[in-house]
Write a protein that binds this DNA or RNA. Structure first.
Lengths: 222, 222
DNA sequence: TTCGTCATGTAATGGGTTACATGATTAC
DNA sequence: GTAATCATGTAACCCATTACATGACGAA
């Protein structure tokens, strides 16, 4: 009878912990700010919100009604239903944050976890980062093994695809190594530290500065 | 009444075009050799095969029966049901290869297309690569815009996640640029060309040479 | 003879999107 | 007053996984 997606539930709870919001805005945050890692549609989000309310993690509040307009000082936006995290919800989220089980190192789950590292204790952060890393190293070994086994009977394109895939994974491992090192040495995120990777903007990516696009909506629904 | 996954259908047809196979083996190829990009389970594969047979793209052949053992000279493996591409199936696959619609630039779809570039005409290859690239550039612009809009109100971890995500996309764009250049100048895949990226094994990935793992199965089912 | 892998299948379930239906509010 | 965007929802479908059921073969 419910939509227990895990990752969506987690992300919603996490976003609402920062501040109450209504569904529409929530979805935008999911897809942009926090996003990149996953786009959810309303058909997923709204039922999930209802389920969370039913569980007692959230309560619905009527958004500023037409009458008491301008009551909303900062958001400047009228809203229908604002969702607010309950005490139980907060507690529940805290528990979720503390867990660092094997599910937490899968691609999307990991991204969601990482996005809320700001509210996660250092030791849990370490466990998650290291878990993710060894997950990726497993994957790498499998890829290497399979590549070694089949190398000769594959055409160049298949090979190239595989090579690129492996490099992507290796790159993420390096990234995790840096992050883990950062955590270990205590400096809290490489804020202004020297970019030792020349990463910035090195190569031939056409800037193609067409910012004059109509861009009517921020919405990723399409 | 059927399982028209598109990408699975495409991949199955493509693999069977090279040589007839039975389901079990097909799945392994999907997950390893050709794989990396997607793992399908039997619950997906078998019904799909049935559907393809019903469509007339495939025919089932009895695999070498217990009696006439050793009939299978090369594969050295007994098989139950071997699937073979029909003439219509071949034709159908050819058509699919020729299409280069917008669906073809989405992540998984693109990987599947790329895996069969060996059987794709050069101009279609170009269209797919360029389509993919502009798809990614769109995505980049969106990310940049959203980042610019929200930069200050995000914590360091969220920011770092976003930065890493963008770099990943930028990296794929560079990769595509190289591939497109290769196609354009005619040299057919950077076969033995000098690795201009020092890619090989540069950075701190612990080799962790534990090849003595039990590793009972190649199976990615888990 | 038992265990591991090869091999084929199906029903229940999960998790999500699409398309649709509806309406309020703002900007022009 | 009309178009665009904000805002909420639902039903129908899609794609795929999980867990289960079944069985043959080879090696220890």
């Amino acid at each position: 009878m419910s939509r227990r997606s895990g990752i969506l539930e987690f992300a919603v709870l996490g976003l609402l912990r920062e501040s109450p919001m209504h569904g529409y805005e929530l979805r935008k945050r999911l897809n942009t700010s926090l996003g990149v890692f996953r786009a959810f549609s309303y058909g997923t989000l709204y039922p999930c919100l209802k389920a969370l309310v039913a569980s007692g993690w959230l309560i619905e509040e009527p958004g500023s009604a037409p009458e008491d307009a301008r009551a909303a000082s900062l958001a400047g936006r009228r809203a229908k239903i604002v969702y607010r995290l309950t005490a139980e919800g907060k507690e529940h989220f805290e528990e979720l944050l503390a867990h660092s089980g094997p599910d937490a190192w899968e691609d999307e789950h990991f991204a969601a976890r990482f996005a809320f590292f700001g509210q996660t204790s250092r030791d849990v952060r370490m466990r998650v980062l290291e878990g993710r890393r060894s997950r990726l190293e497993e994957r790498l070994e499998k890829m290497r093994a399979s590549l070694a086994r089949t190398r000769e009977r594959l055409d160049d394109y298949t090979l190239e695809l595989q090579r690129h895939g492996m490099e992507s994974v290796e790159r993420e491992v390096r990234w995790l190594n840096e992050l883990i090192e950062s955590e270990r040495t205590g400096r809290d995120m490489r804020k202004g530290s020297a970019p030792q990777d020349t990463s910035g903007d090195a190569d031939g990516i056409p800037r193609d500065g067409d910012s004059s696009r109509p861009g009517p909506s921020d919405d990723t629904t399409k």
